[in-house]
Computed example of a mutant assay.
Amino acid sequence: MKARQGALRSIEEDTVVGAISRRRFIQISGAAAGLALGAPVRAATSEANLTIWHGIMLGAVATMKIYHHDRGEAERLIAAAYSEARRLERLFSLYLEDSDLMRLNRTGILVGPPPEFVELLKASLRFAELTGGMFDPTVQPLWELYANHFAQEDPDPSGPDKASMKAALACVGYHRLSVSSERIVVPKGTAVTLNGIAQGYITDKIVELLHSRGIDHTLIDMGETRAIGARPDGEAWEVGIADPEFPERTQAGLPIVDRAVSTSGAYGFRFDPAGRFNHLFDPMTGGCGHLYRSVTTIAETATAADALSTAFSLMDQKRIEALLSRAGIERAHLIDETGAMIDLVV
């Protein structure tokens, strides 16, 4: 599993994204790396009634494109969505020391956990079961193992030693996670990461909020991308997948209407200069994924697209095809090790 990074681009605004951070940096609609949180701005496009907000959420660039005839209302909607996203970030973040997730990992227990935390962990366990453990929210010990190894002076380029890997793997396994509305428990040594699903979940929650307030045409990216309806002109949103080797180029374009898109790629974060070790962790072996340069999924929800782009990165094509309909994935776009593109459609 990952704290991983994809590369999508909005074709109509010709924006390209590269890999720069621990977590996926998916950029839609012209956001730039390192932007601080800011106020909504009127889009510098010919489209009337469009307001765009850019900021940082869960360690990734986030974007909201709101089409509304009343700019004041658009800004109020963005403020409400931002407030909700920040509230959820305080539950799931590995960057905020006082988040609920960090408290769980420090103490091993959360009593009376927030309902959203329970909902997301239960969804994580469902995806873990569905994928035979390829999606696993307890791979944080593997991240810590690799990060600590390569933080050493002159680390062994072949990676962590077998004994250290065995010890880390002993702490990994979604069955070790106990989740109920009353309490969440993990045993000592086990740690949870939601970086492979939280951004998708937050994106879905923001979409629900905006849709309930009457928004019918919007593109949201909270680290994952989801469209509400079509573009105001009735055309599909065009989301492009960047070439993993040359991120300024578009390798493929995907039209979406009322759908979510997520991309995972081994190039998103590399622990070592040679790129042998990345953030796509195999929970069974502790190794890192290299089957594909990138995996893109399209689904009804960003939560599903996010989780399954992670898991599919560790599966061969035949296994992915067998899971598509069961997993709720309508299309998977793979770029294999040679750069060849493979489209799998339900």
Rank of each mutant, 00 (worst) to 15 (best):
K2W: 09
K2S: 14
R4F: 12
R4C: 10
I11S: 07
R23E: 13
Q27V: 14
A32W: 12
A32P: 07
L37Q: 15
A39L: 12
A43V: 04
I52H: 00
I52E: 01
K65S: 15
K65A: 14
Y67N: 09
H68D: 12
E73Q: 13
A81W: 00
S83Y: 07
R87T: 09
E89M: 05
F92L: 01
F92I: 00
L96Y: 12
L101C: 06
R106Q: 13
T107L: 12
I109H: 08
V111E: 15
F117Q: 06
S124G: 10
S124R: 03
A128M: 03
T131K: 04
T131S: 13
D136K: 02
Q140N: 13
P141A: 00
L145C: 07
A151E: 13
D154N: 15
D156I: 09
K162A: 15
S164Y: 02
K166E: 15
L169P: 02
S180R: 11
I184Q: 02
P187E: 13
K188M: 12
A191Y: 01
L194S: 05
N195F: 06
G200Q: 02
I206Q: 05
I206V: 15
V207N: 08
I215P: 05
T218G: 13
G223I: 05
R226I: 11
I228Q: 02
G229V: 06
G234N: 10
A236I: 04
W237S: 03
I241C: 10
P247G: 06
T250L: 14
G253P: 08
V257R: 15
R259D: 06
S264G: 09
S264E: 03
F271L: 04
N278T: 01
D282R: 04
G286P: 04
C288K: 02
R293C: 01
R293Q: 14
T301L: 08
A305E: 07
D306R: 07
D306M: 08
A307C: 06
L308P: 01
S309W: 04
S309C: 10
F312P: 02
D316R: 13
A322K: 15
L324A: 06
S325M: 12
R326A: 15
E330F: 11
D336Q: 10
E337K: 15
D343T: 12
L344C: 11
V346F: 07
